[in-house]
Design a protein around this nucleic acid. Structure first.
Lengths: 347, 347
DNA sequence: TTAAAAATTCAAAACGTTTTAATTCTAGGT
DNA sequence: ACCTAGAATTAAAACGTTTTGAATTTTTAA
């Protein structure tokens, strides 16, 4: 394996010049730079990462800790993130080291991995309000980036979508179609994103002058089953009037809702409208629904590049940046005007 | 962060002695060794891995490539392995770098990751006969260890269980209970383990002087569904006599078989015996079956330490070792004597 | 008491890179 | 021809460890 020294010897140059030439420093003559690059190419030079890391003081590795849940849907999102993140990190010469969280203490695996002293920082996901991991990492001054955020006004690096906005867009679409009795099938309430979706939903409804009974709100694991059972209960009409529209936390939930409507003999979107948030996971594609699903769409995969860059820059000394994107509203066939006989909000 | 130099300065020793003392070299005076260790402890010394790696020429990282399948059961085994491997590797100061295989070419991700020039070796799993990855890595002289093996007489580092023996044990148990019509619900035939299970099964049956009709053999993805549908077909008796016992590639398949028996109004083990191979995954526990499942048991988790050690030693220069363990036969309540009226093999 | 042997310790090189400070070279102005 | 500014290059230090070969100290044997 060729080294800087080899290239220097080949061309009669010092390693310093060779190093600078390859790194594109301005003070090196353009002709020597080209010569060096040609020689590097010819000799098959590839920088020794370990040596680079020794001198720069950074390891070029970031960690991610996976929280394993019995719920399989989590695995899906994990693989999606893993795929995107390894690619995005590799593009900047950073590697991803994985560890598994099997403990009760959410902070322990971070501490353990940090003690091994090889990581430049962490990528966190699935934030909860007042996340203890954030407290720990900030206190220890360990760089990290969060996918999503624990709450408004985060003072750490994070990237995510506007979850309140997700609900807001959904409510606006549905109310513009005349819906007044709208239910929210939310994700687990311990997660920050579910909290944001809920408050965004309630605020948007209030802004429209609409009431939301407790029976129209539920929080549960993002499974087809939860969509099915909760929707079935709401559509039974036993706890008061039935909703005319559902906002679902995920396409998986929406699948359950559609099944529930079908089993009740209701048409989508004729009798019931359904809108979901879509992470664009490969397995549960919203376009393949029958009818095609109206969604707020924010591919999980798209978060990977910003996350990787945010973290790498932060590790390199850039200030912690907060970025937030708005999900895209895609109106398909699962939403329609409110049925005529249901225009009265609470008959 | 304290370095060897700091400790040396503290005690008036050279870095060489300090290094040797901490690494337990025999030529260092036991009193100085203790002094050094005490000082290291007191100053909170932790070796700089990057520096170690620079001088030893090894990166201390091994790679693993995940092949993502739509079949969710694979994720389960993956997480199980990931958990065990990260722990086993960490115990020897090695980190696991993950990448995802999304391509058709099974070799490409290995080549890509190797080009990044940071890995000491690979951990491979799910071998197929004449695995192209093995050919590639051997040709490039890249160290690796295989979980399982591509065939008999592997000439590379590998660890796994005796899959022919798994079938053999199952056949022996069932024939000792009087069963003669035994079916094998195998995993996908492209995998080496399934090939071994099949040949072990056929050999053991032949050794007992028993015939196996084609209808009693099937190979498919390891899902509850495949267990259910194949068992149901066999138990219908439309393709000849019904099997009195099933050997299942996994507990997931066994779950399907039990359901099929139930739906046909058959008792387990009164009418049909069921035995499965058990990877000891947390979600589908054989003891919790009703009746509790008889299994050949080899926890996937147990493979992690041998795999990690085999690879690390091999990277350090030890010859590639092949190890194979025998699965444990655990007789529970799902196997019993053949029903009286079925003692005739082919009525 | 002394030479040889054994046990410790040390200085220095090595790993391959980046970066600082110093040096050489070139061109421009007098 | 001489000085100077700027451009281009270099030598050397640094990162923190391991390891080689030499040097020192201690122990053993004569």
């Amino acid at each position: 394996m060729a080294t800087l020294k080899d290239i220097g010897a080949e061309l009669g140059l010092s390693v310093a010049t060779v190093s600078r030439a390859l790194n594109g420093f301005p003070e090196v003559n353009i002709k020597t730079r080209d010569k060096v690059r040609e020689a590097a190419e010819r000799l098959g030079y590839r920088p020794n990462r370990v040596a680079q890391r020794l001198v720069t003081g950074r390891s070029g590795m970031v960690g991610m800790i996976i929280k394993i849940r019995a719920d399989m849907s989590a695995d899906q999102t994990f693989f999606e993130m893993l795929t995107g993140l390894t690619a995005a990190l590799a593009a900047r010469d950073v590697d991803l080291v994985l560890a598994v969280d099997q403990d009760d203490d959410p902070v322990l695996p971070y501490r353990k991995l940090m003690e091994r002293d090889i990581l430049d920082g962490f990528i966190l996901n699935a934030p909860v309000p007042d996340d203890p991991r954030v407290v720990f990492l900030q206190e220890k001054r360990i760089p990290f980036v969060m996918h999503g955020q624990t709450g408004p006004d985060a003072d750490y690096a994070c990237y995510g979508i506007d979850n309140a906005g997700v609900s807001e867009d959904a409510v606006k679409l549905l109310t513009s179609l005349g819906h007044k009795r709208i239910a929210l099938l939310n994700g687990q309430s311990r997660y920050a994103y579910a909290v944001d979706r809920r408050s965004g939903f309630l605020n948007a409804m209030t802004a429209q002058g609409l009431n939301v009974p407790q029976a129209f709100l539920c929080s549960d694991a993002e499974t087809e089953m939860q969509g099915y059972t909760h929707a079935l209960a709401m559509l039974s009409g036993q706890n008061g009037p039935r909703p005319t529209a559902f906002i679902c936390a995920s396409t998986l939930i929406a699948a359950g809702v559609m099944q529930a409507a079908k089993d009740r003999g209701l048409q989508v979107p004729g009798d019931v409208s359904v809108i979901a948030h879509d992470d664009a996971l490969p397995l549960m594609r919203a376009v393949n629904f029958e009818p095609a699903l109206t969604v707020t769409r924010a591919p999980l995969r798209d978060a990977c590049v910003p996350l990787a860059n945010l973290l790498i820059d932060h590790v390199a000394g850039a200030p912690a940046e907060q970025k937030m994107d708005r999900a895209e509203l895609i109106v398909r066939a699962s939403t329609g005007p409110v049925p005529n006989e249901e225009t009265d909000p609470w008959p």
